[in-house]
């Protein structure tokens, strides 16, 4: 196991009477994509902003390569915030040039433009970009100093599926360059695709941490059956099944699929709209907290 590039020790952050982060500790090894998962209000943005050095913790500390966050960290970190506005009236190239000028070392502006597939947009006013193009520009700005550690705070929120897939490809190409990535998201497919390790955060605390596949194996030996709520009669609730009520569907977890299906057929539950799938991170979160991730 390599030495952690970033280490968080017993982090606490209070906002008046609200505790946003409550004694959170974690260590991020160099070269991996580390995901912070949790629903809105779980404390992941507060945590990542303290890790970025943008926000001060009430107590606890963050260390980069074994030292407190300092000027070296600012030179070597790349950051993509959840929401960022750029300076008006600047083109894509000029926006990147501005940020390139703030760092002692980094990539050339042309190289960053090429990496983020912005060649055709380079001379366009940054206010005239689509959501996906805007995110690619912000990613380019985050990469302009060739960072050792890259923070991405919900980078694909609000993007259409195509733009999201394009963005994932970009992040995978950055991963291939052995950069350390800290990613917050509430999209489970995103986390499963990109993250080597995840920490699930709820009420400012980590409630599970590890590689996604290992966490799923630890918590689920079962498969999930999904049925629309209207297809599930009230009388079927008395059946000997592990039933979870979701907003518009019923979920049943089982490690004996044959017996469960036979039970449903015997109870005359219509199975035309039945969906069977393996457990995913969303199920894991539900299992651990009793809440849906995007609640």
């Amino acid at each position: 196991m390599s030495e952690p590039i970033l280490e968080v020790r017993n982090l606490i952050k209070h906002y008046s009477s609200v505790t946003a982060v409550d004694g959170l500790s974690l260590a991020v090894p160099e070269g991996i994509c580390f995901g912070l998962l949790g629903p809105n209000g779980a404390g992941k943005t507060t945590t990542i902003e303290i890790m970025e050095g943008i926000l001060e913790a009430t107590s606890g500390e963050v260390r980069y390569r074994g030292a407190p966050l300092d000027q070296r960290f600012r030179e070597e970190a790349g950051i993509l915030f959840q929401k960022t506005a750029l300076q008006d009236f600047l083109t894509v190239r000029q926006s990147i040039t501005l940020f390139r000028g703030l760092y002692a070392r980094g990539l050339s502006v042309d190289e960053v433009i090429r990496m983020c597939a912005l060649e055709k947009l380079a001379e366009r006013d940054n206010r005239k970009l689509s959501g996906g193009q805007q995110q690619r520009l912000l990613l380019a700005i985050a990469l302009v100093n060739d960072p050792s550690v890259l923070f991405l705070d919900e980078p694909t929120t609000g993007l259409d599926p195509q733009a999201r897939r394009n963005f994932w490809e970009l992040i995978q190409s950055i991963k291939a360059r052995k950069k350390t990535i800290i990613l917050t998201t509430h999209y489970m497919d995103e986390a499963e695709l990109l993250c080597d390790e995840i920490a699930i955060v709820d009420r400012g605390r980590i409630i599970a941490q590890g590689p996604p596949r290992r966490l799923l194996q630890e918590h689920f030996a079962e498969v999930m059956l999904e049925l629309p709520r209207q297809d599930f009669p009230a009388s079927a609730r008395a059946l000997p099944l592990r039933i979870i009520d979701m907003a518009e569907r019923i979920e049943i977890t089982t490690d004996d699929l044959d017996t469960t299906l036979r039970t449903l057929i015997d109870a005359h539950v219509p199975l035309n709209n039945l969906r069977i799938r393996p457990a995913n991170l969303e199920d894991l979160f539900l299992e651990l907290t009793g809440k849906e991730l995007r609640a």
Partner: peptide, 15 residues
């Protein structure tokens, strides 16, 4: 700049 978050973004640099 402050309201739009541009200052916050600059704060994340060595400036």
């Amino acid at each position: 700049y402050r309201k739009s978050g541009f200052l916050k973004r600059l704060h994340a640099t060595p400036l």
